[in-house]
Simulated scan of single mutants.
Amino acid sequence: MTVRRRFLLTPSFARLIRRERGGLRHIEGFFPEQRDRSSWVRLEEDRGWLALKTVGQGGEAEDQTDIPIAHAHALLDVCAGEVDYTRTALPIGEGHALIDEILRPRVLHLVTVEFASEAEARGFCPLEWFGPEVTADPRYTNQAIALRGLDKAPEIPLSDAALNSLIDTLEGHLPTQARLAVNRPKAKQVPVTRAKAQISGEAVKVNLDEIEKAMRREMEKTLQKGKPE
């Protein structure tokens, strides 16, 4: 059983991660809700899945199966609601944090971490660049966002400590606890946008020092706007 914890994420951090690591476009379409089960179709570039989650005495069980792309598009046409997002898998030790930039039905940024058990999930200490946790808030599931929408999400304040924590993650420097607790995702993420720029035919890696300087300037502007005149 996969256990997930979900957190809000400040938009500028999500953009920084996608710029460095790329991302994969997803569309999930959900069928009308039922009391003890939910079903949806997911489209990822040239692959399609049909998923079913049931709730019983033994807890939740989730199954999915590959379907042809044409079938996925046909099912999306009859779904009750959709979520369109770009996902980036950011390595955390032996696992990944899944960064979702939701584009429709409203702009929202989330980070999800998957675990193999409840004990591992409880033992995980969120990294400092994560925003407020929304795991227990049913409004922040993809199904709820697709079928019922979402009011404006709270603003997440930027901080120097959070930025340094994100830079450490991008460079592969993590607390020991985070390395041990995170579960490896089942599906491999294949980026469709690139984290490298093409200059004179040569790939040039994004300079994290320059990104950090730009982020600090953005934080200073945010702080200046918040000061009373």
Rank of each mutant, 00 (worst) to 15 (best):
P185N: 00
K205D: 15
L174R: 02
R184H: 15
V182M: 00
V182F: 13
A197S: 03
V182Y: 02
G172W: 03
N207Y: 02
E210L: 15
P185F: 03
R184A: 14
A203Q: 11
E212T: 13
K186H: 15
P185M: 05
Q189K: 11
I211A: 08
A203T: 04
P191N: 09
R179W: 06
V192N: 09
E212N: 12
V204L: 01
K205Q: 12
V192T: 10
E171Q: 13
S200W: 10
T176N: 02
K186N: 15
D209W: 03
K196D: 12
Q198I: 14
E202G: 12
Q177M: 10
V204N: 02
A187C: 13
A197K: 10
L180T: 13
H173G: 06
G172N: 04
E202I: 08
P185Q: 00
E202K: 13
N207F: 05
A195M: 01
I199V: 09
A197L: 08
L208R: 01
E212C: 13
Q189S: 10
S200F: 11
E171D: 05
P185Y: 01
H173R: 08
L208M: 03
N207L: 05
I211L: 13
V206Y: 01
V204I: 03
H173Q: 06
V192M: 11
N183P: 14
E202N: 12
A187S: 15
K196Q: 11
D209I: 07
L180Q: 13
G201Q: 03
R184I: 08
I211G: 06
P185C: 01
Q189R: 06
D209A: 05
E210Q: 12
V190S: 09
G201V: 04
T176W: 08
A187D: 15
G172C: 08
L208W: 02
D209K: 05
L180F: 11
R194P: 04
P185S: 00
P191S: 11
A181V: 15
V206D: 03
K196N: 09
G201S: 05
L180P: 09
D209Q: 09
A195G: 10
T169Y: 04
T193F: 09
A195W: 02
T193E: 06
T176L: 07
P185V: 04
A178M: 03
S200R: 10
V182G: 00
E210S: 14
Q177F: 11
T176I: 11
P191M: 05
S200K: 08
V182N: 00
H173N: 09
E212I: 09
V206T: 07
L208H: 02
